[in-house]
């Protein structure tokens, strides 16, 4: 007797689903072939999920940089240390806010659209049609979107950080009149390339993998109905945001 979904153990079901997702990841990675087709479709997905998220990432980055430096200057002025603002902004950005905020924005902007797109392909039997043509949909549909996410998120994070630094420059130098020399030299002497900067880059690679795996997985196993697609989209945002924050803590404690 195959078990009914609703009758499954409430504690074991999430574990089973994690395993299912892991098998899906392995199957997806196992289908990597170094060929032109994969390169082209990955590039196309980088355009769709990476390049199209760029504007929102830049705007958010800029304002996060401004507000960070506003808060930092406010707090540091109490100790007469407002010239340390760039150090504070840089450390929080590179280590935490850049990777995490970009991943959350990415989950909302790109993760949902990937989940909905694949779910809709499933609902209109395009996935089934592919399988029947002896084309592996995991390789052709899921893999390029996953790879594009892993490549795009670190680059989007770099973009976010760059615009946040520009935002901080505009606010602290342009508005508050701090000395640009002190601003840059504090950044250059205080922010460690290997720990602060590369740590953030590694985080964003992992986050890119998490968000796009979840989006692709939920889309691929969505119920082939309108409601199923909606559920897949919602679950993608919720679960990938939660996992990003959990993995942020895990990676931070490992990297420090």
């Amino acid at each position: 007797m195959p078990k009914d979904r609703s009758k499954r153990n409430a504690f074991l079901a999430p574990i089973a689903e994690t395993g299912h997702c892991g098998v899906f990841l392995i199957r997806m990675l196992g289908s990597i072939r170094l060929e032109r087709e994969l390169l082209i479709s990955t590039l196309q997905q980088i355009y769709l999920i990476g390049a199209r998220s760029l504007v929102i990432i830049m705007i958010c980055g800029f304002f996060v940089g401004m507000v960070l430096s506003l808060q930092a200057i406010n707090a540091l002025q109490l100790f007469g240390a407002s010239d340390q603002v760039s150090l504070l902004v840089g450390k929080t950005l590179f280590r935490e806010l850049g990777p995490v905020l970009t991943a959350l924005l990415f989950a909302g902007r790109a993760g949902t659209s990937v989940a909905a797109e694949i779910g809709l392909m499933k609902a209109t039997s395009q996935i089934e049609a592919m399988e029947l043509m002896a084309i592996d949909p995991v390789q052709r549909i899921a893999l390029p979107r996953f790879l594009a996410g892993v490549v795009s998120l670190p680059l989007l994070t770099a973009m976010f950080n760059a615009f946040a630094v520009i935002g901080a420059v505009v606010f602290s130098i342009g508005v508050m009149g701090l000395d640009p020399g002190i601003f840059w030299s504090k950044l250059q002497s205080g922010i460690l390339f290997s720990k602060d900067f590369m740590g953030g880059v590694w985080k964003s690679v992992v986050f890119g993998g998490i968000v796009s795996l979840i989006a692709v997985y939920f889309g691929y196993y969505a119920k082939p109905t309108g409601e199923g697609v909606g559920t897949a989209t919602t679950r993608t945002v919720v679960l990938s945001s939660v996992l990003v924050l959990i993995f942020d803590f895990i990676m931070t404690s490992l990297l420090i």
């Binding site: 950080n161 760059a162 390339f193």
Partner: peptide, 12 residues
């Protein structure tokens, strides 16, 4: 952006 941040905003 990665290169700019690495060279201008870190000790790289």
């Amino acid at each position: 952006a990665l290169l700019w941040l690495a060279t201008e905003a870190t000790d790289y």
